[in-house]
Simulated scan of single mutants.
Amino acid sequence: MAKPDNRADNVEHLQQSIQNTQQNLHEAEEYLNEFSSEISSREREEIEDKNERRKRSIEGFRAEVKDEAAHSRES
């Protein structure tokens, strides 16, 4: 039997994902600031690329939060 669609805690999970991703982004930026002279240009580029993906993920999570908020008002 399929589970019913329980969206009650979706916003909470999304907000936690936003916080975790922001923390990872911040830590990676600190790492780059502290060790940029000690890492290869390839490693730096990989970290910068990953941070760009993190920023896009945060935007996506925020859009989902808005969708969930709109859905909860409709219910």
Rank of each mutant, 00 (worst) to 15 (best):
Thr21Phe: 06
Asn51Leu: 00
Glu64Gly: 07
Gln16Ser: 15
Lys55Thr: 09
Lys66Pro: 04
Leu32Thr: 02
Asp5Glu: 15
Val11Leu: 01
Asn10Trp: 03
Arg56Glu: 09
Glu43Phe: 02
Asp67Cys: 07
Ile18Leu: 05
Asn51Gly: 00
Phe61Ile: 03
Glu59Gly: 01
Glu48Tyr: 06
Gln15Asp: 08
Gln22Gly: 05
Met1Ala: 13
Ala69Ile: 14
Glu64Leu: 10
Asp67Lys: 15
Ala63Gly: 03
Asn51Phe: 01
Ser36Pro: 02
Ile58Arg: 02
Gln19Leu: 06
Asn20Pro: 03
Leu14Ser: 02
Asn24Ala: 14
Glu34Trp: 01
Pro4Met: 03
Ile18Asn: 05
Glu43Gln: 12
Asp9Leu: 14
Leu32Ser: 04
His71Thr: 10
Arg62Asp: 11
Glu34Asp: 10
Ser40Gly: 02
Glu48Val: 03
Arg7Ala: 13
Ser41Gly: 08
Phe35Ala: 03
Ile58Cys: 04
Arg73Glu: 11
Asn20Thr: 06
Gly60Trp: 07
Ala70Ser: 12
Arg73Ile: 07
Pro4Trp: 04
Ala63His: 06
Glu12Ala: 14
Asn51Glu: 00
Asp5Tyr: 08
Gln15Met: 11
Asp67Thr: 12
Glu46Thr: 13
His71Asp: 13
Ser37Leu: 10
Ile39Pro: 07
Val65Ile: 06
Glu38Ser: 11
Arg53Trp: 09
Gln22Asn: 00
Leu14His: 07
His26Gly: 04
Glu52Tyr: 08
Phe61Gln: 03
Ile39Tyr: 00
Glu68Asn: 07
Met1Lys: 13
Glu34Lys: 09
Ser40Asp: 06
Ala69Gln: 15
Arg62Gly: 10
Asn10Val: 04
Ser72Val: 10
Ile47Cys: 01
Asn10Gly: 01
Asp5Arg: 09
Glu45Pro: 01
Asp5Ser: 11
Arg42Ile: 15
Gln15Lys: 13
His71Ala: 15
Leu25Trp: 06
Leu14Pro: 02
Phe35His: 10
His13Trp: 09
Asp67Trp: 10
Ala69Glu: 15
Phe61Lys: 00
Arg56His: 08
Ser36Ile: 10
Ser41Tyr: 05
Arg53Asp: 12
Asn51Arg: 07
Glu34Tyr: 05
Arg62Lys: 14
Phe35Asn: 07
Leu32Glu: 00
Gln15Asn: 11
Glu45Gly: 05
Asn10Thr: 02
Arg54Lys: 05
Lys55Gln: 12
Thr21Asn: 05
Glu34Asn: 14
Met1His: 12
Glu46Met: 11
Glu38Tyr: 08
Glu12Asp: 13
Glu27Asn: 15
Glu59Lys: 10
Glu43Trp: 01
Glu48Lys: 04
Glu43His: 08
Glu48Cys: 06
Ile47Arg: 02
Glu29Thr: 09
Glu74Pro: 04
Gln19Tyr: 07
Gln15Thr: 00
Lys55Met: 09
Ser57Met: 12
His26Asn: 13
Arg7Val: 12
Glu68Ile: 03
Met1Trp: 11
Ile39Cys: 04
His26Thr: 10
Ser36Leu: 07
Ile18Val: 11
Gln22Cys: 04
Asp5Asn: 13
His26Ile: 00
